[in-house]
Amino acid sequence: MKTVSRWFTRLFLLTAMVYAPITWALEPVYSDFFGHAIKGYDPVAYFTQSKPVKGDSDYQYQWNGANWRFSSEQNLQAFKAEPEKYAPQYGGYCAWAVSQGYTAKIDPDAWSIENGKLYLNYNRSVQKKWLQDPQGNIAKADQHWPRLLVE
């Protein structure tokens, strides 16, 4: 029995050594039960169409541990070229929650773009709180985010 236990321990340690650098390099992305970022909505559409647009399973891309969907090939290619430009801030978690020091899921319809960056919120009621002081909330969220990455 000890031999089996040692074998599993060694296997675990070896696996951790191989995958740990990859995991540490990734920023967590909020995804739904199916692994879709932004609940399957197209991140590029927020910028190009100024509204949330449901992505299509024909246009998908794996990035940062999540499956991103797009409404067109053009949007998919734009994201592939510059994912950091289009991906929501704070890994797609509710930006207001991050400004308060915790993470929460999002509603794709509760969003805003500030200084060329996409911010998502839990719901429209929370979005109203976010929009009362977006710059102040961004400053607070930026302070909390690095700590939330390791918790």
Rank of each mutant, 00 (worst) to 15 (best):
K117I: 04
S50T: 13
P88E: 01
M17I: 15
Q49N: 05
Q132E: 13
H36C: 06
G55S: 09
W145I: 09
N67W: 05
A87Y: 08
P43D: 11
S5L: 15
N64L: 12
Y102H: 04
G65M: 14
I113F: 08
K140G: 08
Y30F: 12
G35T: 01
H36F: 12
A37G: 13
A81S: 12
E82H: 10
T3Q: 14
F34W: 12
S31F: 06
D107Q: 00
K39R: 07
L120R: 03
D58R: 15
D32W: 01
V53T: 10
A78Y: 08
S112E: 05
N115W: 07
A87T: 08
L14C: 15
S50D: 15
M17G: 15
W96E: 06
P43Y: 06
E73T: 11
N64T: 13
G92C: 03
K128A: 11
Y86Q: 03
L14S: 15
N121Y: 00
Q77K: 12
R10W: 15
Q89V: 00
W96G: 06
N115E: 05
Y119Q: 09
A87R: 05
G101S: 01
L14N: 07
W145H: 11
P28D: 03
S72N: 05
I113K: 03
Q127G: 06
L26P: 06
Q74F: 04
G55N: 13
A81D: 13
T48F: 05
Q132P: 00
P88K: 01
T15I: 14
Q62F: 08
W145M: 05
L76F: 04
A87H: 06
P88Q: 07
W7I: 15
D142I: 04
D107E: 11
A16S: 11
Q135L: 14
A78D: 10
Y41G: 03
G91S: 00
Y102D: 11
Q49D: 14
Q100D: 07
K140E: 08
R147F: 10
T48P: 12
A20L: 13
Y93K: 03
Y46W: 10
V29M: 11
S57G: 11
Q100G: 07
A139T: 11
G40T: 04
G92Q: 07
Y93F: 10
G65W: 09
Y119I: 00
P134L: 07
K129N: 04
W7E: 00
K51T: 05
T15E: 13
A20I: 14
L11C: 15
A97R: 05
N121P: 01
E82L: 06
V18N: 14
P134N: 01
C94S: 12
L13D: 10
S5H: 07
F47E: 14
K39T: 12
P28R: 01
